[in-house]
Design a protein around this nucleic acid. Structure first.
Length: 466
RNA sequence: GGCCCGUUCGUCUAUCGGUUAGGACACCAGGUUUUCAACCUGGGAAGAGGGGUUCGACUCCCCUACGGGCUGCCA
């Protein structure tokens, strides 16, 4: 019998969506979608101090941009506090947990002394087996009555069987003295209640998994399948942090990487399917298995990200690309296309997309199509425009000519720039001028082609340069 | 300190006891090109170190080194 797979992504809303978190979400999504399962989203906002609505919105935005759609309503952990407390009480009743009256001060003092003497800082509560009749009338926490002997083994799909001696695990707190649940407890209750079958998360939770398994057992619940994936590191091999540059997913969105490229790159980071490097979402879903996940932390490589990004831009359908490009423009607060510019870019897309790695790159190469007419003399802009135009010259397709510029527009441009302004065309300027019969200044090659037709320009160029 | 995880070209990785250790990005050289990009060809480049086990180890075991995680009434 194969049970339906249920995965979840459970970020805490304390900032932006971390690139590592995005990858974790992607793995969960890929696994669920590839197996006809369900992918749930849970916001772990039990830390009231640090959780903010803005952060939650940023996370949702990031997932949406990345194209990771979740099933059902977003679950907010804080709203389930009552249920968490209820379960803790039930464990108390079952004898799987106990009340502990040790104060934070006492525990801290114990740990400090232990540290000073080089002993284990593991806190063993004196209340574990205390007689209820000796309970003081004071605030208490509810602690898990974890097994003292034997071992707890995490049967991890990525890390293999990881064994922990129970004596090294303490009786973790389930319910704080103010009655609120700890993260460790809430996760277990929520994963169980949500029917999560596979917990795929960062390997910083590996040790936690052992404790959580004890909670599952304490309630007699089925333990989900665990898969702890290595964290992403910066180019220097250290844990990825702000000093490495981009850690928030929205920064990558801002840099103009298409979501599909981002998904591909992120999936390939720490996961592999033979020698496959560039693939579609459908392939990724079909190929993704927990067994393909590596055990070592991976480093971010922007060069490769760019390459993958470029491959995806090239293989996207023109219309979809155009839509995403304009969305990028809006998100990056850049001026939107005018109707003419849009028409020109659209027409040029087949040639354009093959040579761009990111959206800003695409925009730069599309300058000849988006530049405002009449063209104003600007040496720098003219040069960039010119280089690209020349490159594109050889493969411009007939469709480009359908967005033709009228002879009048060309005349106006030519008239407005005047001679010797710097809108040079390099070595090709002279022959082009000649081609323009009498005109002393040329607009971009592209523009000329729009007017004269590609073949004619190419023909005259060949003659002139021979 | 204690417990746990990891370590193949610069980077991402393949290999699941027997391979000239493969691919990709990057890099270098050449080609193509109306000197962008793309593309083609070729090249250099790796099993952290030391012990075992084995006819045979990158693959299995141990130790060391290095990196990382956990060790909170944070998540």
């Amino acid at each position: 019998m194969t049970q339906k797979i249920v995965t979840r992504f459970a970020p805490s809303p304390t900032g932006y969506l971390h690139i590592g978190g995005a990858r974790t979400a992607l793995f969960n999504w890929l696994f669920a979608r590839g197996h006809g399962g369900t992918f749930l989203l849970r916001i772990e906002d039990t830390d009231r101090e640090r959780s903010t609505p803005e952060a939650e919105a940023a996370i949702l935005q990031g997932l949406t941009w990345l194209g990771l759609d979740w099933d059902g309503e977003v679950v907010r952990q804080f709203s389930r506090s009552d249920r968490h407390a209820e379960v803790a009480r039930e464990m108390l009743a079952r004898g799987a947990a106990y009340k502990c009256f040790s104060t934070q001060g006492e525990i801290e003092a114990f740990r400090e002394a232990a540290r000073a003497e080089g002993r284990s800082t593991l806190f063993l509560s004196p209340w574990r087996d205390a007689d209820p009749s000796t309970y003081p009338d004071a605030p208490y926490v509810i602690r898990l009555k974890a097994p003292r002997e034997g071992v707890t083994v995490v049967e991890d799909k990525v890390q293999g069987d990881v064994t922990f001696k129970n004596e090294t695990l303490d009786d973790m707190i389930l319910l704080r003295s103010d009655g609120t649940p700890t993260y460790m407890h809430a996760v277990v209750v929520d994963d169980h209640d949500m029917g999560v079958t596979h917990v795929i998360r960062g390997d910083d939770h590996l040790t936690n998994a052992a404790r959580q398994i004890q909670v599952f057992r304490g309630m007699g619940w089925d333990v989900p399948v665990f898969a702890h994936i290595p964290l992403i590191h910066g180019p220097d091999g250290k844990k990825l942090s702000k000093r490495h540059g981009a850690v928030g997913l929205e920064e990558y969105q801002g840099m103009g990487y298409p979501a599909a490229g981002m998904r591909n790159y992120l999936a390939r980071l720490g996961w592999s399917h033979g020698d496959d490097e560039v693939f579609t979402d459908a392939q990724a879903r079909e190929w993704f298995e927990l067994e393909g996940i590596g055990r070592a932390p991976a480093r971010l490589d922007f060069k490769k990200l760019e390459h993958v990004s470029g491959q995806h831009i090239a293989m996207m359908a023109d219309e979809a690309l155009m839509t995403e490009l304009e969305a990028y423009l809006a998100a990056a607060a850049k001026p939107a296309f005018t109707n003419t510019a849009r028409a020109r870019v659209q027409a040029a897309m087949p040639v354009l997309k093959e040579r761009a790695k990111t959206f800003p790159d695409l925009l730069e190469k599309a300058a000849f199509a988006t530049v405002e007419r009449p063209i104003v003399p600007d040496e720098k802009a003219a040069k960039a425009l010119d280089d690209v135009s020349r490159g594109i010259l050889s493969e411009l397709t007939p469709q480009l000519q359908t967005v033709s510029w009228t002879r009048e527009e060309l005349e106006a441009t030519v008239a407005s720039v005047g001679e010797g302004h710097g809108l040079g065309l390099g070595k090709l300027a002279a022959p082009l001028r000649a081609a323009l019969a009498g005109k002393t200044v040329s607009p971009s090659v592209f523009d000329m082609m729009l007017v004269l037709g590609r073949d004619e320009v190419v023909g005259r160029l060949s003659d002139a340069t021979r």
